[in-house]
Simulated assay, not measured.
Amino acid sequence: MRQSEPSRQVSSDARRPAPRWRRLRAVVLASAVLYLLGVVAVWLALPIAGDRWWPATLFLFGPRLVIALPLLAIVPAALLVQRRALVPAALASLIVAGPILGFAVSFRSLVGGAGRGDLRVASFNTGSRRTSMERLKAFVAKERPDVLALQECDLPELELTTAFPGWFVHVDRGMCLVSRHRILEAHSRDRRDVWDAGGHGAILRYAIALPDRVTAAAPSGAPEAPQPDAQVPPGTRAFSLVNLHLETPREAIEALMRGLWKQAAEHDRVIALRAWESELARQWVDEAPHPPIVVGDLNMPVDSAIYRRFWSDFENAFSRAGLGFGATKLTRWFGIRIDHVLAGPGWTTERAWIGPDLGSDHLPILADLRWTGAAPGDRR
């Protein structure tokens, strides 16, 4: 017997969701899409506005995880009433975890580099605290860096020389360098102009001799870098290492937390000071006579407008070959990566990682770099 037309209509109406459920599904889907658009907007705007506009600077150096809080409502709602909303929610999650929170992942970090590399560099801000020499020696014995750059270093030169016999040591007003390879030159920029402006501005540049047994590993077709310095010993090739500790944004952030827009002028003053210090540091890097490596506490993440202006043309070791969020500066609630190893022309990164807690509010950052050769004019 054929079903009557009224019966078919009643059956179809019974399968249709009630109007209130249709509205709820639409709201959940719209919320997920709007959240995705908001996350994309933050992602694109942060490198432009961070360290330029005070709300963006607060977010740049603050607990960025707050941007993920809407997912606590969107994802359960999508699972319950609108599965299609999971697609924009998943895309937003990837953007939050990667570009915004800074999770680094690369093929090299997953499979490992081709080896140790030609030079292992470590950088560590000791945090103005009394450094435990025993912990530092244990760290060096385990990680085996070729060059260890320290910022806010309170260790006397004699103590470092005694702790690392046979190494080359240089100490200058809170900036220390310990190197297995010979330090040919050490230049420290006069900081008085920066201090007069209320900044920090620790900028030191070294010429270090790298044995030919290391640089001979470069590809045979790679062009050779110029060696203008006659004091480079036979059988070695020099590179320049620049150790930095630049001005912190702390004063601006603390002022903004007290007065928000009322402290915008103080924010702009500190930002201008930090940009000036980066400009001075970059001049010293560009004047380096040998292929440069930059290490230290830059006091800025990679999505800072100041970083992108002065440092983005260098290869960031952790961004290139690290795995994870890579926080180097720790607070009670969150971490941020403001300490960096930057490889200039002639170098590439095989591996980068974060070291253990050595008693500071910073963690050391390490990188294995490989020499590839550099031609004149490669640097900016």
Rank of each mutant, 00 (worst) to 15 (best):
241 L>W: 08
241 L>H: 03
242 V>Q: 09
242 V>D: 02
242 V>K: 07
243 N>P: 01
243 N>W: 00
243 N>E: 01
244 L>Y: 06
245 H>G: 01
245 H>M: 07
245 H>P: 02
245 H>Y: 10
246 L>D: 04
246 L>I: 07
246 L>V: 09
246 L>Y: 07
246 L>R: 11
247 E>H: 13
248 T>H: 06
250 R>T: 12
250 R>A: 09
250 R>Q: 12
252 A>F: 04
252 A>S: 13
253 I>M: 12
253 I>Q: 13
254 E>M: 11
254 E>V: 07
255 A>W: 00
255 A>K: 03
256 L>H: 09
258 R>T: 07
258 R>W: 03
259 G>E: 13
259 G>V: 05
260 L>R: 14
261 W>F: 06
261 W>C: 01
261 W>H: 13
262 K>L: 11
262 K>H: 12
262 K>D: 12
263 Q>T: 11
264 A>G: 05
265 A>S: 15
266 E>N: 07
266 E>D: 09
266 E>A: 11
267 H>T: 11
267 H>C: 05
267 H>M: 08
268 D>I: 02
269 R>Q: 13
269 R>V: 03
269 R>G: 02
270 V>Q: 15
271 I>S: 07
272 A>D: 14
272 A>Q: 13
272 A>E: 15
273 L>D: 10
273 L>K: 04
273 L>E: 12
273 L>H: 07
273 L>V: 05
274 R>E: 10
274 R>K: 14
274 R>W: 06
275 A>K: 00
275 A>Y: 00
275 A>V: 03
275 A>M: 02
276 W>Q: 14
277 E>G: 05
278 S>C: 13
279 E>T: 09
280 L>M: 12
280 L>H: 08
280 L>G: 05
282 R>V: 08
282 R>D: 10
282 R>N: 10
282 R>G: 01
283 Q>L: 08
284 W>C: 01
284 W>A: 06
284 W>L: 03
284 W>M: 10
286 D>Y: 02
287 E>H: 10
287 E>M: 11
288 A>M: 10
289 P>R: 15
290 H>V: 08
292 P>I: 04
293 I>A: 00
293 I>R: 01
293 I>Y: 04
293 I>C: 00
294 V>Q: 08
295 V>E: 00
296 G>D: 00
296 G>R: 11
297 D>W: 11
297 D>Y: 10
297 D>G: 08
298 L>S: 02
299 N>R: 11
300 M>N: 11
301 P>M: 11
301 P>S: 11
302 V>S: 15
302 V>M: 10
305 A>D: 00
305 A>V: 06
305 A>M: 04
306 I>T: 15
306 I>K: 09
306 I>Q: 12
306 I>M: 05
307 Y>T: 14
307 Y>E: 01
307 Y>G: 03
310 F>G: 00
311 W>N: 00
311 W>P: 00
311 W>Q: 01
311 W>K: 09
313 D>M: 02
314 F>K: 14
315 E>T: 15
315 E>H: 09
315 E>D: 12
316 N>P: 04
316 N>C: 07
